[in-house]
Structures are given as structure tokens and as C-alpha cells.
């Protein structure tokens, strides 16, 4: 049961998006988020959606998978849409009125744009990052992008190493939790009865063995790492060197052009725009 939780749903592949330097992807994602929130009118939004669709197509990730990513946030989308729909006061007459519930045209537009923003946000980040970048590449990229912070004594390498080890051990510990739960159940432990305090108490027989095992693993892992000559960041090289290639420069150029066009479209006169 616990094993079914998937973390960092990475789909290996060799699409242009997969091949992008993870550092470039990280930076582009941040910029994309900014862009998503700067789109203002129907033209800019249409262009944005077009952009996100091309991202999906380029990544060769199936639409089904993308829809799966959106499913968990459907409620959130519905909620924001409803709030925008009913709480936006427009000018002129409402297009719909029932008692105190009034819907203006502006509300409808805002709700639509909000939904588009959320969809683009989720699709864009998952396509650019989680679906096409392995967790290790991501940690790596973070480590390298944040390297300048070392000057002010931020332990960037240590954080990245901790993240890598955490990612490595999450499946192992989940499996272990499953095993311990089953073992204590076999000894008659009831883990799901009573109120919250009872439940917390009932989990003690699971948590203590889990902690002890995690410490034992940490101890052994530290010893194994020492045996493999690990001594921190100093003098350490990497097998995979991140190097910006043509495709990376090209993607940056494309992105800049895309940004320019979007900002231009924002200036076009139309009545269908965010208030």
C-alpha cells in the first residue's frame, strides 16, 4: 500500500526536453511561472496555452499522464474558479442573477483565466521538471546553480548530498514501514482504532523500530561512504559534467522570443482581459 506512493514521477526518455541541461530547465521554469502570471488578455493567454501544448508535444509525454497530474488539483481549480466567478464585481449589468448571487462577465473571464493559469503552471512545471528530469539531475543542477552561495558559507554540497540520500532511501524506508506495520498487526496491534491520540499511541510500535532502523542504516551508509573515500566536496569530481549545448542556447533564445511576443500581445486592445 505505501509502496504505491510515487515520488518524483520521472519518465525516462530522450526528447529535446529530456536532453536539456537541468540548470537551464530550472531557470526556465522560474521564468515560465513569471510569464504565466503576467499574461493579461485573451491573446496572451491563447499564446501561453499554445506554448504549453508545444512543450507537452516536444516532451513526448502522453497526454494521459499530463491529465493525471492535473486531476489532484481539480478541486482547487474548481474552488478558485467559483471564487473568481462570484466575487468579481463588474461594471454594468450582471449577465446572471439569482437573488444575491450575481455573475458579471468580468467574473467569467477571471475564472477562465485562473483555471488556465493553474493548468499551465502544473503542466509546465511537471513537463519541464519532474517528468523529464531525474531527481538526481535536479539535485545536481540545484547544487551547481547555488554554488555561489558557498562563499557565504551555505553548505550547498552537503544539502545536495542529503537530498540525494533521502531520495535514494525513501523507497527503502516505505517498504520497511510496510513490513513493520504487517509484523505488528500479526502481533495483534490495532493501528486504526480510536481517536487521534489512540492512533498516535498505536503507532509507537511502528515508529520506534523505524527510527532505530533508519539510524542503523545511516551508520552503515556512513561507513560504506568512508570506505569509498568520501570526504566531502573537496577534490571531488563528477562523472556527468553539465555542459550547455546548442539545444540549451536555442531553447533560451526561443524562450526569450516567446516572452517578447507574449508581452506584445498583452498590449493589444481587447475587452477580454484580466481586471
Amino acid at each position: 500500500m505505501l509502496k504505491d506512493i510515487t515520488l518524483g514521477q520521472f519518465f525516462p526518455g530522450s526528447s529535446p526536453i529530456h536532453r536539456l541541461d537541468p540548470r537551464v530547465k530550472l531557470v526556465l521554469v522560474v521564468l515560465l511561472v513569471v510569464l504565466i502570471f503576467s499574461a493579461k488578455n485573451i491573446f496572451a493567454f491563447s499564446f501561453l496555452v499554445l506554448g504549453v501544448i508545444s512543450l507537452v508535444l516536444l516532451s513526448q509525454i502522453s497526454v494521459k499522464v499530463v491529465l493525471k497530474a492535473i486531476r489532484p488539483i481539480l478541486i482547487l481549480m474548481l474552488f478558485t474558479a467559483i471564487i473568481n466567478l462570484f466575487w468579481t464585481k463588474g461594471t454594468g449589468d450582471p449577465i446572471f442573477a439569482l437573488g444575491f448571487i450575481k455573475v458579471w462577465r468580468e467574473g467569467l473571464v477571471n475564472a477562465l483565466f485562473m483555471v488556465l493559469r493553474i493548468v499551465s503552471l502544473v503542466t509546465g512545471t511537471s513537463i519541464l521538471l519532474t517528468y523529464t528530469t531525474s531527481p538526481i539531475a535536479l539535485t545536481d543542477a540545484l547544487e551547481r546553480l547555488l554554488k555561489p552561495l558557498k562563499v557565504i558559507k551555505v553548505p550547498v554540497h552537503e544539502f545536495a548530498m542529503m537530498m540525494t540520500i533521502a531520495l535514494r532511501f525513501i523507497p527503502t524506508l516505505l517498504e520497511e514501514t510496510d513490513k513493520i506495520i504487517n509484523a505488528q498487526k500479526a502481533r495483534g496491534a490495532s493501528l486504526d482504532k480510536g481517536n487521534l491520540i489512540d492512533k498516535v499511541k498505536a503507532f509507537v510500535p511502528v515508529l520506534i523500530p523505524l527510527f532505530i532502523s533508519a539510524f542503523r542504516r545511516a551508520d552503515e551508509l556512513a561507513c560504506a561512504m568512508e570506505c569509498r573515500c568520501y570526504r566531502g566536496d573537496e577534490g571531488r569530481t563528477r562523472m556527468k559534467v553539465l555542459k550547455m549545448g546548442e539545444i540549451d542556447y536555442l531553447s533560451i533564445v526561443v524562450f526569450l522570443v516567446f516572452t517578447a511576443v507574449l508581452f506584445f500581445l498583452n498590449t493589444l486592445p481587447t475587452s477580454i482581459s484580466v481586471r
Binding site: 531527481p135 535514494r168 551508509l221 560504506a224
Partner: peptide, 9 residues
């Protein structure tokens, strides 16, 4: 323990 000596993902 095979699990406790593998560092990377």
C-alpha cells in the same frame, strides 16, 4: 546489507 551501501538513485 545490500541496501545500506548504495548511495545514489
Amino acid at each position: 546489507n545490500p541496501d545500506n551501501q548504495i548511495v545514489a538513485t
